[in-house]
Design a protein around this nucleic acid. Sequence first.
DNA 1: ACTTTAATTCTTTTAGTTCTAAACTAGAAG
DNA 2: CTTCTAGTTTAGAACTAAAAGAATTAAAGT
Lengths: 157, 157
Amino acid sequence: MKNLNESKLKFIEETASLMEKKGFSPIVSRILSFLLIADTEEKSFYEIQESLNASKSAVSNGISLLLDKNFIKANTNPGDRKRYFRLNVETWIEVLKSITEEYKGYRMAIDKALELRSEKFTESNSQLTKIRDLYQLFETKLPVILSEWETKNSSQA
Amino acid sequence: MKNLNESKLKFIEETASLMEKKGFSPIVSRILSFLLIADTEEKSFYEIQESLNASKSAVSNGISLLLDKNFIKANTNPGDRKRYFRLNVETWIEVLKSITEEYKGYRMAIDKALELRSEKFTESNSQLTKIRDLYQLFETKLPVILSEWETKNSSQA
DNA sequence: ACTTTAATTCTTTTAGTTCTAAACTAGAAG
DNA sequence: CTTCTAGTTTAGAACTAAAAGAATTAAAGT
C-alpha cells in the first residue's frame, strides 16, 4: 500500500474489519474505508488500485459491486477518460433507516416461534415474549429517533 | 429432516437464514431455530441430529460452539447418559443489550475518519457528521429504551 | 474386565470465495 | 484505421469454511 501514512493504514485496517463483520469482502471493505479517508474526495481506479496494492480485477469487481449497491458513485470529467469514484453517503443513511425493518424481521420470527411452540412452556414462553417486546419497542422507538434526527438536521441545514 | 411438520420446517429454513446473516453457520443457525420451536424444551444430541438430518460431527461442533458462546445450555438427568440441550435466553438478552456497543464502534470509526479527512471537504464532512450524530443518538437512546423495557418487565414479573 | 452408548476429535471431501494474471473490448486520440 | 488508455472479463490458483465419515475416547452398565 502506497501513499498512505501510518494512521490512515491503521484506519483502513480497523474500519475494513468492522465492515467485513457486516458481510463485505475484504477488498470491498478496504475500498470503502480508503475512500472514507482519502486526501481527495474522488479517487480514480488506478489510485484505488495502487493505494490498496490490489489487482485490477479485484478492484474492478469490488467497484462494480459497490456501484451496484449504490455505496459509491462514479464521475467522469470532460477531456479525461478516467472515472472517479466517491462515497455515496445517501445510501449509508438509507441503510441506517432500514435497521427498523431488520428488527421487525426478528420480532416476526419470534411471533411465529411463539405460535409454533407448545403453550405448556409457560416460563420460557414468557421470557421469549419479553424479548419479542424489546424488538417491538425498537420497532416503534427507532423511527422516533430517526425523525428527531431528521428535524434536527433540517433545522440546522 | 424428520418429525417436523411443514410449518416448522419452513420456520427453521427462514429463521436460520436470518441467523446466517448475523454470522452463524447454517448448521448452528438450524440448531438454534430447531430448539426454538421443538416440541419439548430440551432436545438430545440424537434428536437434533435426526431432526436436522445432519452428521454427528456437524452437530457436535455446532453444539460445542453454541455452548461455548452460551447460546444454549446442557442438562443431564440421573440414570441417563445423554445430555439435553435447550436455548439460553439470557444470552439473547445480553446480545440485545450489547447493540449499543456496536453502534459506539461505528460512531468512533466515523470520528476517526473525520479526524483524518481534510477539513476542505466541508459538504461531505457535514454529511458524515450527521451520520455520526445519528449513531451518537442511538448510543444515548438505546440504553433508555432498554431501561424502559427492564422496568416494564420487573413490574409485571 | 468387557461391552455399549454417547459424544468428540481427526481426516477428508466438497463447495465456494477471493484474488491474481492475462486476454480482451470499447472508446478516444492521433 | 491504428494506437493508446481504461477498464472488464475470463480462467484459474490459493485459500477458507462447512460438513461428512471414520476412528477414538470416556463413562456407564453388565
